[in-house]
């Protein structure tokens, strides 16, 4: 799923209330940016409805893990608070290497992925995602 040097780059996690939105967003990153960025998504609650869950987010962070860090893109309220909770629950050695981006989920993920693919730092990846503003 990830390229040979994927762990040299910051990873991207996509958290949406809808699994379809999360999967579709991840598809856009894969197709537009490529496979050199560790990427994982999660969405929906355990009952198959709309929602987000802390264990699913933790699992996604684990799948997209990179020593360079992980940037998280979210859609609405609960996705953000659950992601913050997941970050707090990370093991100590991963604390501070996972950041939430304040950016639109689809556009932010493509921007973040493009920046990450160039080997940029976690802070640069977040800055690029957050630099985007509606025209």
């Amino acid at each position: 799923m990830t390229g040979p040097d994927a762990n040299a780059n910051v990873g991207i996690v996509i958290v949406s209330h809808s699994p379809d939105v999360a999967r579709g967003t991840a598809d856009m990153v894969r197709q537009m940016v490529g496979d050199e960025v560790p990427l994982a998504w999660c969405g929906g609650n355990p009952d198959g409805g709309l929602g987000t869950s802390v264990p699913a987010i933790l699992d996604a962070i684990d799948r997209a893990w990179s020593e360079r860090g992980v940037a998280i893109l979210v859609d609405l309220g609960g996705a953000e608070t659950n992601s913050e909770m997941a970050i707090e629950m990370l093991p100590e050695e991963r604390q501070g290497r996972v950041l939430l981006c304040n950016a639109p989920i689809v556009e932010g993920a493509v921007m973040a992925g493009t920046e990450a693919s160039a080997g940029s730092t976690l802070e640069e990846v977040r800055r690029t995602a957050e630099e985007l503003r509606p025209a």
């Binding site: 197709q31 537009m32 940016v33 490529g34 493509v110 493009t114 693919s117 160039a118 080997g119």
Partner: peptide, 12 residues
């Protein structure tokens, strides 16, 4: 979008 990503990645 897609050409922009390719151009930027190459520039980087």
């Amino acid at each position: 979008a897609r050409p922009s990503v390719k151009l930027t990645k190459l520039a980087k």
